[in-house]
Design a protein around this nucleic acid. Sequence first.
DNA 1: CGGTCCTTTGACACAGGTCAAGTAATGTGG
DNA 2: CCACATTACTTGACCTGTGTCAAAGGACCG
Lengths: 243, 243
Amino acid sequence: MSRFTIANRNPAPQRVLVHPCDTCGARDHSACASLNDEEQRRLVSIMTTIEVGPQRAIFNETDPADHVFSLTAGAVKIFKLLSDGRRQVTGFLFPGDFLGLTHNEAYAYSAEALTTSRLCRFPRRRLESLLDELPKLERQLLGMASHELAAAQDQMMLLGRKSARERVASFLLLMSATAARQGNTDDKVSLPMNRGDIADYLGLTVETISRTLGQLKAKGLIQMPSEKQILLTRKGALEEISG
Amino acid sequence: MSRFTIANRNPAPQRVLVHPCDTCGARDHSACASLNDEEQRRLVSIMTTIEVGPQRAIFNETDPADHVFSLTAGAVKIFKLLSDGRRQVTGFLFPGDFLGLTHNEAYAYSAEALTTSRLCRFPRRRLESLLDELPKLERQLLGMASHELAAAQDQMMLLGRKSARERVASFLLLMSATAARQGNTDDKVSLPMNRGDIADYLGLTVETISRTLGQLKAKGLIQMPSEKQILLTRKGALEEISG
DNA sequence: CGGTCCTTTGACACAGGTCAAGTAATGTGG
DNA sequence: CCACATTACTTGACCTGTGTCAAAGGACCG
């Protein structure tokens, strides 16, 4: 039933080695950026590539945290649920991002694909023992973790103290910056998530998202060629609004 | 003017070595927990102990991030400011917690002592080169970072989706759990921060904090022997409320 | 003691939530 | 490729939880 499929399980070691970063989608902040060829080979040897269809779970908050993932293509949302169904999306992830890193038995959040996504899956135990031998990799992970921590604090500021309009403006700018990081240079931001996901990310409701985007459009700060594509026509004004 | 004083700068190496953990206040999740004596000695050799009076800044969001700190006594709040003065307290720190870890030029937040506090101060560059030689220490830091990341996600859930009453109940339980971690076993929680700090931590106003605590008291879930001491008389009920 | 700051309490306002309806996009089976 | 069902998005009217403003205790301190 699940479209969660395993593309290749433990690729045969004698296989011609593609550069790992072609496979695992590394970039500046990604795992193997700082590794030499031999180290990258060892990292690739313990990994499996998987592909996940849209709206499919990658893992669940309650699952045993047996794997760590690196996103190489597509887009993913991570979120937490309250017992009564309230949802908080804690992040949107794009190629180069890690997910599933934890020091507990269970994951800290659920992860679900927004679009068809490719991920590298590392067995946690094997990755941890590999870390013992590749301190550079561990340094890389620490760097990524402290970067995420800074982002989390920005999000706390947003959720705790910003108005709806400030939140939406901040969100659009964040998505724009993320797209730039991904190599997309123009000001047309594409939103792989739906309004409900945005609402749950910003601590608002779908209606408020819709109304606020409508206001920004009416003021000429953005254009919406389609529901999932937004043109930031006056980025400076958005920056002023974003608080 | 500042009560920010340096207690001992680079303690003479020939001095009789106190066990570092007597000095730096290590516990389970603290830096030197996993280190042997020699490794701890090296860690201590680069560190300075400082003492900071109440309401005194430890560092500022905009300061160059030249040091990393470990809190050994007292209590600290970390927070971010918006240009118009809105404030989000992103955390309250207690002995054993680290602060100031970042991979950017500047700190990610400001830090201020709530009560007279003692901290170990590590020059960032020297700590980073020490990390190259002490992978266990790096592992420890990674563990602490991912623990903080999980806490940050809980806080996003709170700020994005919980009601005022749920936030206050969650906060009291968190403070109780933290006190337990610190060795305080009973249900009397002491709050070193004032109502304004709590409000800025929970994304509310002082008035709402005050009213909500009043309600919980009226319902008999808590008692307030003093403004800064709260007795959780019906913890179970608080847990149900906390969402 | 008198001043300052913190906390509590009350009256009222409003941003954003809720509920309901309408419209546009997307998918599905024939 | 088209009816039709389904889901997502938008818009409007109204409501409510929390913010704002104001003032009155209390605690602390020189």
